[in-house]
C-alpha cells in the first residue's frame, strides 16, 4: 500500500485534456446559444427601437421631439393620468387592508382556510377579465331597474360616479388579488410570523404594537412588491375601464391614437419605461434582500 513510485514514464501520465469530442461539442453548444440569444434580442428589441424611431421621425420635417413635448399639453392627459393614479392608490389601500389580515389569520390561527384563500386568490387569473366585466356590466344594467325602491339604488349610482368610479376600484382589487397574494405569501414565508408574534407577545407587546412594529417592518419588501405590482396593473388596465365606459390613462391613449399616432406611441413608450422602472426597482429590491439574508 506504499505510494507508488512513478514507474511509468512521464509521457504515460498525460496532462489530461478533455477529449477532442468534448471540445467540439462545447463549441457547437456555444454557437447554438449565441444564435438563440441573438434571435431573442432582435425580436424583443426591434419594436422598442423602431417605435422610438417612429415617434421622433416626422415624414415631412425629419427628426423632431414634438410628439413628446405635446404630451403634457394634450387634452385629457392630466385628467386621465390623475384618475389612473387615484384609482391605483385606492386599489392598493383596499387590497392590502383586505388581504394582509386574512393572510395573517391564516398563518397564525386558521391554517385550514389556506386552500380556500389560495383558490380565491387564483380565480381572477383563471377567469378572463373580459368575462368579469361582462358580469359587472350586467349587474350595473340590471341593478337600477330592480333596486330602484331600495337604499342600494343610491349605492349603485354612487359607485359609478364618473369623477371617481369606485366600481373600477372594486374590479381592480379582484384583478390584483393574485399578485398581492403571491407577494405577501413570499414575504410571510421569508419570516417566521408565528415565532415573531409569539416572541413579541412574550415580551409584553400589545397586538397593535405587534402588527405595526414587528410584522409590517419585516414585511416591507412583500408589501412594496404587492403595491408596485398593483400600481403597474392599474396603470395599464384597459379592458375593464374601456368596457365600463371610463377614461383612465390607457383608454385615453387609445382615444388619442386616432388623431395623433406619434403621440400615442410616445405615451406608450413612456408608460412602458415607467412599468420597466417599477419592476426593475422591484426585482433589484428582491435580490438585495436575498443576498442580504
Amino acid at each position: 500500500m506504499a505510494p507508488l513510485t512513478p514507474a511509468v514514464p512521464a509521457a504515460a501520465v498525460p496532462a489530461a485534456a478533455p477529449p477532442a469530442g468534448r471540445q467540439g461539442r462545447a463549441r457547437r453548444v456555444r454557437v447554438w446559444r449565441g444564435v438563440v440569444l441573438a434571435a431573442a434580442a432582435l425580436y424583443f428589441l426591434t419594436p422598442l427601437i423602431t417605435s422610438f424611431v417612429f415617434t421622433v421621425n416626422d415624414p415631412v420635417r425629419g427628426f423632431t421631439l414634438d410628439a413628446y413635448l405635446e404630451i403634457f399639453s394634450a387634452e385629457g392627459f392630466v385628467q386621465s393620468l390623475l384618475l389612473s393614479l387615484g384609482l391605483a392608490a385606492a386599489t392598493i389601500v383596499v387590497v392590502l387592508l383586505l388581504t394582509l389580515p386574512a393572510m395573517l389569520a391564516v398563518r397564525l390561527s386558521a391554517p385550514r382556510l389556506r386552500p380556500v384563500l389560495e383558490v380565491i386568490c387564483t380565480l381572477p387569473l383563471v377567469v378572463p377579465p373580459i368575462t368579469f366585466v361582462a358580469g359587472i356590466s350586467t349587474v350595473l344594467r340590471w341593478g337600477p331597474d330592480h333596486l330602484a325602491a331600495t337604499p342600494f339604488y343610491q349605492t349603485i349610482i354612487a359607485v359609478q360616479n364618473p369623477a371617481f368610479p369606485a366600481v373600477l376600484v372594486i374590479a381592480y382589487v379582484v384583478l390584483a388579488l393574485p399578485f398581492v397574494y403571491r407577494s405577501l405569501d413570499a414575504g410571510l414565508g421569508a419570516i417566521d410570523v408565528r415565532t415573531l408574534v409569539e416572541a413579541a407577545r412574550n415580551c409584553g407587546a400589545s397586538w397593535p404594537h405587534v402588527l405595526l412594529r414587528v410584522i409590517i417592518p419585516n414585511l416591507r419588501a412583500g408589501l412594496a412588491s404587492a403595491s408596485f405590482l398593483t400600481l403597474a396593473l392599474v396603470l395599464g388596465e384597459y379592458t375593464v375601464a374601456r368596457l365600463l365606459g371610463y377614461q383612465p390613462f390607457p383608454v385615453w391613449i387609445v382615444t388619442i391614437s386616432g388623431s395623433n399616432a406619434a403621440m400615442s406611441v410616445a405615451v406608450s413608450i413612456f408608460s412602458l419605461l415607467f412599468a420597466w422602472l417599477l419592476l426593475l426597482v422591484l426585482s433589484t429590491a428582491g435580490t438585495r434582500k436575498r443576498s442580504g439574508s
Partner: peptide, 21 residues
C-alpha cells in the same frame, strides 16, 4: 391600519379573513 389586526385578539382565528371573503 390597526383595525384589521386590532380585531384579532377576540377572534376565533378566521375573523381576520372575513372581510376578504
Amino acid at each position: 391600519v390597526r383595525t384589521g389586526g386590532g380585531n384579532r385578539p377576540r377572534s376565533t382565528g378566521w375573523t381576520g379573513a372575513l372581510p376578504l371573503l
